[in-house]
Design a protein around this nucleic acid. Structure first.
Length: 268
DNA sequence: CTTTCAGCCTGACGGC
DNA sequence: TGCCGTCAGGCTGAAA
């Protein structure tokens, strides 16, 4: 599933092909995504120039002269650039034909993603916390926000109002690296441990982005996916297997309906 | 205010 | 072989 590094890599991959090009045609084949695709955007978008492509949290923003598209890849979404003559795949829901001959194609089997239009600011971006890789995000910030919070620390760091872009995989990994048990209450964790945790979140996310960047050769291929999924994960998906640090079997529990894997002796 | 939980979907997988 | 049930998961917004 696309986590923040995949989104970042996607933006970097498509941006050079989109910037300063004109939208010749927008085709919506399946408007029923997580939210219905904004009605009438085929007409709205026609003939407009793409001014910028950026990322906020796991949202992709395509800025035009009169507004912007807000795209989320959900669980199974991807964007790829193809040409007019390429065959459509099943679940290719939206296509944006550009004046340079490229066709930006939104593919999403589970349809948890979205493609919305807004003239001004998108409401979905309003309540978001800081970017994890920005200087606004630190151990001190986390510690302050955690005062009196009873929620498990894993739910806390996955709350987009606290910090954006920490999905289930990276939450599991960062807590393991930091030696913090996922179910520990957020308000009961020391300042010092939050400094370690914030640093680990930054290191893990930025190294994943780096891997994505290095494996990304040509985004105009048929896959449309950054190919760095082979990165080694210490705990996620390894329940019952040996801890990479102490060899004890990893334990799996569910927190807020999400699979949480940790080591009972390395994390406390 | 904080926290929990339903719901949106399809594909993969295990059991029979 | 194929059918069926279960699960996975990001995120929002309603409910508690």
């Amino acid at each position: 599933m696309p986590e923040l590094p995949e989104v970042e890599t996607t933006v970097a991959g498509i941006k050079p092909y989109l910037i300063d090009t004109m939208i010749e045609r927008l085709v919506i084949r399946q408007p029923q995504l997580r939210w219905p695709v904004t009605q009438g955007i085929e007409d709205t978008a026609k003939g407009l120039k793409i001014e910028n492509v950026s990322r906020r949290a796991k949202y992709i923003l395509i800025s035009l002269t009169t507004g912007s598209f807000l795209i989320h890849l959900g669980m199974s979404g991807s964007l790829r650039l193809i040409t007019n003559t390429d065959l459509l795949k099943k679940h290719d829901h939206i296509q944006m034909h550009l004046s340079n001959g490229h066709v930006l194609t939104f593919h999403d089997p589970r349809r948890f993603g979205c493609w919305l239009w807004s003239k001004y600011d998108h409401a979905l971006l309003e309540k978001l916390g800081p970017e994890p890789l920005s200087s606004n995000f630190s151990g001190e910030y986390l510690w302050n926000k955690a005062r009196k919070r009873k929620a498990p620390v894993k739910s806390f760091i996955m709350d987009s109002r606290i910090v954006v872009g920490v999905g289930n995989i990276y939450a599991n990994e960062a807590l393991f690296e930091s030696g913090i048990k996922p179910q520990r209450r957020a308000g009961k964790i020391s300042f010092k441990r939050y400094e370690v945790l914030a640093e680990n979140i930054k290191v893990i996310l930025s190294s994943a982005i780096e891997q994505g960047g290095t494996t990304l050769r040509d985004f105009t291929n048929s896959k449309g996916e950054p190919g760095y999924f082979e990165q080694s994960l210490s705990v996620y998906g390894r329940a019952g297997k040996a801890c990479v640090k102490c060899n004890q079997p990893l334990k799996e529990i569910r927190l807020a309906q999400r699979s949480s894997v940790f080591c009972r002796s390395c994390q406390s």
